[in-house]
Design a protein around this nucleic acid. Sequence first.
DNA 1: TGTCAGCATAAGCGTTACTTAACCAATGAT
DNA 2: ATCATTGGTTAAGTAACGCTTATGCTGACA
Lengths: 298, 298
Amino acid sequence: MLTDFNRLKVFYTIYRHKSAAAAAREMYISQSAVSQSLGKLERELKTQLFVRLHKKLVPTSAAGRLYEIIEPFVRNLEGGLAWLEAEKSGPRGVLRIGAPVEFGSRNLVELVAAFRKKHPAVFFEVALGHPDMLLPRLAAGELDFIFADIFPGRGARNLPPFTVSPVLKEKLVLACSAGYYSARLGGKLTPAALAGCEFLDYSQGQTALLNWFRHHYDKSFPGLKAVLTVESVQAILNAIKGGLGLGIVPEYLVEAELKAGSVKAVRTGRPELLNRISLVRLKGKAAAPAEKAFLENF
Amino acid sequence: MLTDFNRLKVFYTIYRHKSAAAAAREMYISQSAVSQSLGKLERELKTQLFVRLHKKLVPTSAAGRLYEIIEPFVRNLEGGLAWLEAEKSGPRGVLRIGAPVEFGSRNLVELVAAFRKKHPAVFFEVALGHPDMLLPRLAAGELDFIFADIFPGRGARNLPPFTVSPVLKEKLVLACSAGYYSARLGGKLTPAALAGCEFLDYSQGQTALLNWFRHHYDKSFPGLKAVLTVESVQAILNAIKGGLGLGIVPEYLVEAELKAGSVKAVRTGRPELLNRISLVRLKGKAAAPAEKAFLENF
DNA sequence: TGTCAGCATAAGCGTTACTTAACCAATGAT
DNA sequence: ATCATTGGTTAAGTAACGCTTATGCTGACA
């Protein structure tokens, strides 16, 4: 590659003016410096770039070609720097956020919608997925911050480069329709009776269900019959209401139905399982105004 | 604009490796120098470009944006420099040539065709037009060289930046078909009889005809009846053979017809008018291999 | 013909980018 | 645990090289 990029800038300025003196004036340096810089560049490229005509530098075809390469770069650069400047003046630009599927498609989009009312110059790129996929992307700089079910204490042991702050706690209940409840469980909530039911979950791994059972019975229940797997809270909710089986949903989403009795939650006496979402950011990363404004809510 | 382009090169290298140490190794400078350069760039832009993660530099979104600007530039630059290098190794690239309409569309294209047989990597841009239009373009660096009816002595007085070398001399004759000749001129070649004829010329200004008359009679004949104006020697030739009138053509093109008697040339006793074409180049301009090879013919 | 503007070159200086060195932090091997 | 290793930062001194000043040259213009 070329050794000295600054000579290209000098060349660029000369070319625009077809004059070293004019270029020198524009750059606030001496004409001699410009001349020397050009000479060095020509010697470096072993190519004549200008024909010295009296009071004028006439570009050769090589110079023309070189200029065609540099000109768009300078233009883009100026635009880019102006954009950087603008981003510092107030909330604008792109925010790249990662989130778990459920949280991302439910809570996050609401937040985004509300935020964009106030700051329409901010755009969003939301990546949904498991924290195991999202954390590496955060660490690689592909995301500005992520939401994940990781907590400051446990689990954050081997993540020193991240700052983790709790953001949201919501109770998760195992629920089904009133009809399903009376037909399949009818009062006797033994683990065995439960385990024989039909289940709804968000992923093939049944992580949501497994967590729920471990939390309530300190025991894992492999081989649950997952009759429906779909990565959508709304879909699970509808499946529950339709009497397909038992599924995990945030309690507040079925509050009305629970009160009315059309949906039943499985209660074990223990406190409900909590879905704890944390905000995870790169330690030491400065937040642009857009990011700062968005995170003020938390 | 940005003050220092070289810092951008350092940034570019860091970004590719996500590491200052690796960048330093690639650039054969110390890791400390890289770190300092990056620090200065960030301070200059007042923007954090990398998050310092242990043993890794994680780019911020600003860095990503900056990289998107620099990367294509570097790619284009490398390509361009390679191209420059290739041009020096042998005849290739683009040759931008100016020429008078007649010469350009007749002789030049033949030369180009022959040349491209030997050097197919050379492309041509031919600009046809009057020397008055072509000379400024040559002086502005838009053309590599031009052909023009300018001569080393006369006319080249106020053109010190150009080198002019004669290239071609051809006799120009005023000719018509044998039929037209006997019907309209029939032996008596008085200027008055001539002036009353029908004429064919290449341009509205009748420069070819005016030159011919001035050369042979030291007198201008305004108001000649130009029954056909077309910028094509071939067309004029056909018009002559078709008996439309009198037109100027290079003598060698009608040699066979003159000998056979099917075409007649108007002879005044004076030596024929010469069409003298010179090669005009910018003084001090180095010729690339392609240019050198092409001009060897002259 | 003299004056002016622009480019090239030489020499010396001054800025600044680079090196060296010391320090810190995180990682992984012993 | 502990230590060696690697990478990044910072400070200070040095050396390079880009800039300035000065001079000479050439062509344009009045």
